[in-house]
Write a protein that binds this DNA or RNA. Structure first.
Lengths: 181, 181
DNA sequence: GTCTATAGGGTGATAGAC
DNA sequence: GTCTATCACCCTATAGAC
């Protein structure tokens, strides 16, 4: 039952939104405040600086990743199946946080880069444990990264490879499962 | 025999450099001019606007992609082997142009997004022709995108997955070749 | 908790000297 | 071809009213 989001959360949502749809350059305090429906001064009450805003987004990402790791581990269809299928952008809160953080990482925001790296490491550990073969696990990670790259990072989103792969997710999962036996 | 690069080329080199190492936000006309060793006015003689600078970079990318397609097609070790091995960033002129264009695409530069998409399509066609199976070709594209994502897009570059994959390139090529038979 | 006003510096682009 | 000077605008952050 989602109650009305706090002003703080609306600011983070707005920041994510602009990062995703228009990129780092456009994500100014002015633009974020306008999108969140507050004044710049109001925004800076909640996040004392732009850097604090970035940290806020990274903290949100961290929390979502923790939940996601549980979901992966306990997925009925199995770790690899769930992991691959969740590697296409579905505009979930986690997807949005990841894409926004990636935009920041492409600037020179070491904290965003660190957060993404540690997310990858955690995913790898779970997948590796599930398949019991490092080379296979590495390959699965690459396919997952490729899916993300296509569906999330090229903002046009209609990128050929990923759309085909999305339409053929069953096929892709079968293809990758050839590696695990 | 590389003669001293023209001022125009030095400006493009500088633009690429800053995009790659510091991101879109920092790639201002001032910064590019300083890195290229010219004044802002000097820069704007060669590229009349920032948009023209972006187009210059995309044109350079286009030319490098044309050359690359020939290299892929005629690679002695075969299309897939060459294609996968060339999917890790080696700081080649093509790699640099791709990464710089990706930075721009993450802003809202439709031309950069288009250029990257058409590059992907051309690669896919060559790989698909070589392996003769669309599902396999799609999977190979995803692995390649994953390699690029890891070695090029997370600027720290020391990203786990890709470094391991780099050290184990033979292993990865073998893994993928399991799919082609 | 949210606003307006404003300081101080950066940003793309033009004009005109050499 | 390359430079300096300058313009109008945009950016982050602070101060202080309500």
């Amino acid at each position: 039952m989602p109650s009305a989001p706090s002003a703080r959360d609306r600011v983070l949502d707005a920041f994510e939104n602009i990062l995703i749809t228009q990129g780092e350059r456009t994500a100014t305090l002015d633009a974020v405040a306008a999108e969140a429906g507050v004044s710049k001064g109001g925004l800076l009450y909640h996040f004392g600086s732009k850097d604090a805003l970035v940290e806020g987004l990274i903290d949100r990402l961290g929390a979502l990743v923790v939940d996601d790791l549980t979901n992966i581990r306990t997925a009925p269809a199995g770790v690899v199946d769930y992991f691959l299928r969740s590697s296409v952008n579905t505009e979930s809160p986690l997807d949005r946080a990841i894409i926004a953080a990636t935009r920041l990482a492409q600037g020179s925001q070491p904290k965003a880069q660190e957060a993404l790296k540690s997310m990858q490491r955690a995913w790898f550990d779970v997948v590796n444990e599930a398949v019991g073969d490092e080379a296979v696990a590495r390959t699965i990670m690459l396919v997952s990264d490729g899916l993300y790259y296509n569906s999330a990072l090229l903002p046009t989103a209609l990128s050929e490879t990923s759309n085909r792969a999305l339409a053929n997710m069953d096929e892709l999962v079968a293809m990758v499962s050839r590696l695990t036996r």
